[in-house]
Amino acid sequence: MTTNVQGIDFSKLSLRDALDLAILVEEEAKERYEELAEQLEQHRTPEAAKFFRFMVENEAKHRADLAERRRVLYGREPSTVTRDMIFDIEAPEYDEARAFMSLRQALEVALRAEQKAHAFFVGAMPSASDPAVRALFDSLRLDEIEHQNLVQAQLDKLPPDPVAKPEDYGDEPVSQ
């Protein structure tokens, strides 16, 4: 996962930086779900789009919670980490989206994203020298597990996808 993090030395990360980083990770995920939801709305895939909208809310809430913690601890102190240091930490990859994807497939996208985020914090923990940072990463890691479980629970409630694929029934793509 280190290829998706630019210029961050976890050993030098303060708790404030770590919180800012976590906020950015949630922000990126929120924006990505928003984009994917837009794509799927535009491509008439409403169920998956609705679920991605739900994820937008979730990520926004996580971000708000973290931002509040940061505000209490550090007020308006400027941030030293920026969005250009991270890429696709908790945000699902663009190529996860597909026109006519099922709700199950959408949930699986979210599950993989949460797993990816979990792996990120697990990977970052050992190099963090500040115990407070380590503790934060650990709690975030646990959050991701909780999110995974929530998604998994929803997945378990869903019937399996039909054997037939959307392209077996849908119209051909349209040339432009």
Binding site: E35, Q42, H43, E93, Y94, D95, R98, A99, M101, P173
Partner: peptide, 16 residues
């Protein structure tokens, strides 16, 4: 402007 590309297209990453 919202891209008209198919969901999953590599170009979404490129524009980012």
């Amino acid at each position: 402007l919202k891209p008209i590309w198919c969901p999953g297209c590599g170009d979404f990453g490129v524009v980012q």
